[in-house]
Design a protein around this nucleic acid. Structure first.
Lengths: 226, 226
DNA sequence: GCAAAAGTGTTCTTTTTACACCCATGC
DNA sequence: GCATGGGTGTAAAAAGAACACTTTTGC
């Protein structure tokens, strides 16, 4: 790879960036974290947190850094993976910028955010009906959602949206919010329990109606593949 | 994305490259196209074709260019997709180079290759037992194989390895070579014919043994998803 | 007529879907 | 005692896996 000196060395270097689609559940709905841009182009528009990769920095470190500096999210993501690299020549009017897009899952309870760095603000939005987004960020978000849905089946990513202990109806709610459709309660429980990734904690959660059994992730829970 | 001027602007830019794992079938085996490096580091080692992305160039164009210029492959790939971006800081001793890895399928009949550009040569190797590879190219190849196997189910990528018309045993051979295991003939035929992506051409291929029905891709064949 | 490869069906198992009622608690 | 949400089982359909013999051709 990388022939040292071609006849056609790039005159201007290609800029490398990361963008992060960070998801969390609030009030039973899937939300995505957006920042309001403070500068041109697309000033005042909403966008995914993102920025240039520094030269000594791993891609996932860059993703974590832009999350931290452009918003006030303090918690570590429970999951972070790159899912596609967006490099179309015209995607950024400032020049050739190629962005490695990442999917992040923030833990339950990550509710308060505000802008940091160069942004005017940061807020959670409905992941399925976001506002108009800057650049090609709607395409990035679409693809992030598709990957997230894929990860529900193969990995058990829904668990990362919840606190350590949770009830089965809560877990089903996460699946429904991500898939954007209703699931059958009995089939859902049967399938999840058959997977053996849940262990009952013994405790129960009381509230309105019948108390629900609390579960936690079994020790043998595997992470994302492919 | 891309805050215009952070306090920590990258001192040295991050180099962006593409690497290409190009596959074809020869003699019933899955082969990958490798080039022998002519320069340090890893001089004389085998590697995936790859190189820096030029500033006005789309990622897939860069992938096609390095395929053309580092080997003498003349045919257009029947399939080309990026599947992962490799960016670990230490992956290239010459500096920070991030590579968008691509998977390519070359059409049947792509047999003759030789080196071009800066390479000492280009050859086809067994995709499942390649020689020692330069840099992190073994990891890239591993992941390319995994993606290729995934694409057998979701897309019908096996068809792209074959000429326009082909027999069911030939198609099964492609699946077996990619999955690296034997398949049941009856179940394979049942499944493939049920998908409705094949239309019999009416012709038959004669040879040793009973002649085989020739098929072609149906018009409604869909491409890769996700 | 024999060697070689193509073609063909059935059974069993597993997985997925559809569907309606009782249970435990707070008030 | 009633409103609220949690919890449970079964039957039908679909999909996947195992498995052996007959057919057509060239020589």
């Amino acid at each position: 790879m990388t022939p040292p000196a071609t006849s056609a060395v790039p005159a201007m270097p290609v800029g490398l960036a990361v963008d992060v689609a960070a998801f969390a559940m609030h009030d039973g709905a899937l939300r995505v974290l957006l920042v309001q841009r403070g500068e041109l182009p697309h000033a005042r528009d909403w966008a995914l947190p993102g920025g240039l990769v520094l030269s000594g920095e791993e891609l996932h470190e860059a993703a974590l850094r832009v999350l931290r500096t452009e918003t006030t999210v303090e918690l570590e993501p429970r999951h972070l993976e790159q899912f596609h690299t967006f490099g179309e020549v015209g995607r950024d009017p400032r020049g050739r910028i190629v962005s490695v897009a990442h999917l992040a899952v923030l833990p339950h309870g990550t509710v308060e955010v505000s802008g940091g760095g160069h942004t005017l603000g940061a807020e959670w939005f409905s992941a399925h009906q976001p506002p108009a987004l800057a650049f090609d960020h709607q395409s990035i978000l679409d693809r992030a959602l598709a990957r997230l849905q894929l990860r529900l089946e193969y990995a058990n990513l829904a668990l990362e949206f919840l606190p350590e202990t949770f009830t089965l109806p809560e877990l089903q709610g996460v699946h429904e919010a991500i898939l954007n459709r209703k699931l059958d309660k009995r089939n859902f429980r049967k399938r999840l329990l058959a997977q053996g990734v849940l262990t009952p904690s013994g405790e129960r959660r009381t509230g309105v109606g019948r108390p629900a059994q609390l579960y936690r992730k079994a020790k043998s829970a595997r992470s994302a593949a492919l």
